[in-house]
Design a protein around this nucleic acid. Structure first.
Length: 460
RNA sequence: GGCCGGGUAGCAAAGUGGUAAUGCUCGGGACUGCAAAUCCCGCAUACGCCGGUUCGAUUCCGGCCCCGGCCUCCA
């Protein structure tokens, strides 16, 4: 079946038709690096990682660009508050971001451009916009003239008049039109800035994505993604800048936006202070459990984050890894993504349905009676998970995971106690055997007696 | 107010014009010294409300209610 994606521009699920089937190009808005990523920031990373994997399966070449915003007023504010140098903050935070996203099993993008390294491209684009009559200089600022883009508002579904009517902020006096937005703004001597034809200054937020996507993906490309909240004004303004700078050429074919992650029904955000960083969560659950949690809900639906949800996601992976561990000696047969999983993902990234198939396959594997069936169902489970980026670890590693700061007991110690228990059981001293089992359980180690002997796992 | 997403069993979460996947929870059984894991069976009379179209709607259309988001930095 063809790949279907919900396009925010048409508000419909439509067949994905790449501009060049030989080379699919995707841009996703990345982080502003001034603080650790929270779980809400991680949702688009997980979602677009699945899309990236799927596209790579479907097309010979895919270029995935995700930017890093390293010049921004929030970064400047963070530097002022802590006294840490801006460069130090952005480098350190970007590194932490990479670590956290890797822990979630996300593949790195092909290109990860930084705003500060593309100032000339941005200045060039502003020049083009001014020359084309789409931008003007006012009091050291360069502003985009919204009135020059007749279809401005097509993505967010709002007219220029509505924007002005709904505006809740004071309009800067130098704007010709209240809806105009900043392309370039002047920097004070103590603020980061670059020389430009309009004086020393820095770019407006929307501009970097237009300049960098053009640099690496061309004036028109296939998919642009990000969180739902970016539709307005960020993506709307990107369209305006890019299309006006490129002679009206269509900027992006398919806009994909993920829904919000909420906590207790409320939006999670840094400004509300009700957020969990990925870092904190990784101390409480394996990264893959966080990833599964993010993919268990369809990407466009709201996702209510909770400890119970995280616990359940961990439990589901326990089930999968239990099945894999029990079939460790089975050689998987066949290497195809199962049709159910493939169809689900091609239908607008239906990850919850794909995961449901995974559960059925785990059941098939557990209940398989003959070797051929086992080989086949193990292959289905393994290859089904691959596009979702799951089962990145081995059952052995998975069952060794424990939360940070947990009471711990060494593996040799565990083995020797198990040996003592085996001896006790052999001697029919079940009281002693149960005592050892309870003792280990108190230390977070669960025992399972099976035909092949006793195995153990750590539990969170 | 405008725009967008959502409202499915105890929880989570898919989906469909002909009485609805999957996982967890729960009950029974098998296995086990007992457990755990696994398997088998079962469970609940689950589709926000009101109309309309239809032989038939949870699914299509209209209206309404509720939750959340955007309209200001934000994934």
């Amino acid at each position: 079946m063809p790949l279907l994606l919900h396009n925010s521009l048409t508000r419909r699920k439509e067949r994905f038709e790449p501009i060049d089937p030989a080379h699919v190009r995707m841009y996703v808005c990345g982080p502003t690096v001034y603080d650790y990523a929270h779980i809400g920031n991680a949702r688009p990373v997980a979602v677009f990682d699945v899309l990236y994997r799927l596209l790579k399966r479907l097309y010979p070449k895919v270029t995935y660009v995700r930017n890093i915003t390293d010049v921004d007023d929030k970064i400047m504010a963070a530097a002022k508050e802590s006294g840490e140098e801006i460069d130090s903050i952005t480098v350190r935070t970007a590194r932490a971001y990479h670590e956290d996203m890797a822990a979630l099993g996300a593949l790195p993008p092909d290109i990860e451009p930084r705003a500060t390294q593309h100032i000339p491209q941005m200045i060039g684009m502003i020049g083009t916009l001014i020359a084309g009559g789409h931008a003007y200089v006012a009091e050291g600022h360069v502003l985009f003239a919204v009135a020059t883009k007749s279809d401005y508002g097509k993505l967010s579904g709002r007219s220029r008049d509505e924007l002005i009517a709904g505006a809740r902020v004071e309009v800067a006096p130098y704007k010709k039109d209240p809806a105009d937005f900043v392309l370039w703004k002047p920097s004070a001597p103590d603020q980061p800035g670059w020389d430009s034809p309009w004086g020393r200054g820095r770019p407006g937020w929307h501009l970097e994505c237009s300049a960098m996507s053009a640099e690496y993906l061309g004036e028109s490309f296939d998919i642009h993604g990000g969180g739902h909240d970016l539709i307005f004004p960020h993506h709307e303004n990107e369209i305006a800048q890019s299309e006006c700078a490129h002679g009206g050429k269509r900027f992006v074919g398919t806009w994909v936006h993920n829904g919000f992650l909420v906590v207790n029904g409320e939006k999670m955000s840094k400004s509300l202070g009700n957020f969990f960083t990925v870092r904190d969560l990784l101390a409480r659950a394996p990264g893959e459990a966080i990833r599964l949690l993010l993919l268990k809900t369809h990407y466009r639906a709201p996702l209510d984050f909770s400890d119970e949800g995280l616990r359940q996601a961990k439990g589901e992976l326990d089930r999968f890894y239990t099945a894999l561990r029990a079939s460790a000696d089975i050689e998987p047969e066949g290497g195809e993504t199962p049709t159910g999983v493939m169809d689900a993902l091609e239908d607008d990234l239906n990850t919850p349905l794909a995961i449901a198939y995974l559960h059925e396959m785990a059941g098939d594997l557990n209940s398989a009676t003959d070797a051929a069936m086992k080989r086949r169902s193990k292959a289905n489970l393994l290859y089904g998970a691959r596009l979702l980026g799951l089962f990145a670890t081995t059952p052995g590693e998975w069952f060794r995971w424990q939360p940070a700061g947990a009471a711990t007991v060494g593996e040799t110690e565990i083995e020797s106690r198990i040996a003592a228990r085996v001896a006790a059981r052999k001697a029919k001293d079940f009281k002693e055997a149960d005592r050892i089992r309870d003792e280990l359980k108190a230390m977070g180690v669960m025992l399972e007696d099976g035909p092949k002997g006793t195995i153990w796992k750590r539990v969170g």
